[in-house]
Amino acid sequence: MAGEIPDLHAQERTGTGKGAARAARREGMVPGIVFGGDTDPLPINIPFNELLKKLKAGRFKSTLFNLKVDGHDDVRVICRDVQRDVVKDLPTHLDLMRLRRTTKINLFITVDFVGEDDCPGIRKGGVLTVVRNEIELMVTAGDIPESVTVSLEGLNVGDNVTISQIELPEGAKPTIDRDFVICNISAPSALKSDENAEDEDGEATEAAEAPAEEEAAAEE
Rank of each mutant, 00 (worst) to 15 (best):
D85Y: 12
N133R: 14
E209S: 12
D89T: 08
E134Q: 14
K54R: 15
D81W: 05
S186F: 00
D112F: 11
L8D: 02
D81M: 11
G115Y: 07
D40H: 10
R80F: 02
N133A: 12
G171I: 10
D143M: 11
R98K: 02
D74M: 05
G15D: 02
M29D: 02
I144D: 00
R80E: 11
I5Q: 05
G17W: 10
D38T: 14
E195C: 03
A23R: 14
A210N: 09
P47G: 09
F60P: 00
G158Q: 03
A21T: 05
A24R: 00
E146T: 12
R123N: 10
D117V: 10
L152Q: 10
V77T: 08
V77G: 04
V77S: 03
G36W: 04
E206M: 07
A21K: 00
V161S: 00
R101A: 15
L152A: 10
R22Q: 12
V157M: 15
L155P: 06
P211A: 05
D143T: 13
P174E: 01
N45T: 15
D118F: 08
S189G: 02
D73V: 09
E4T: 12
I166V: 15
E209V: 12
V82Y: 07
T103L: 00
P41Y: 06
G158W: 05
R100K: 14
A216G: 03
A21I: 07
G158S: 03
A197H: 13
G3K: 09
D143R: 11
T140W: 01
F48Y: 12
E195H: 10
L94F: 06
D81P: 03
K192Q: 14
D40C: 02
V157G: 00
T63W: 04
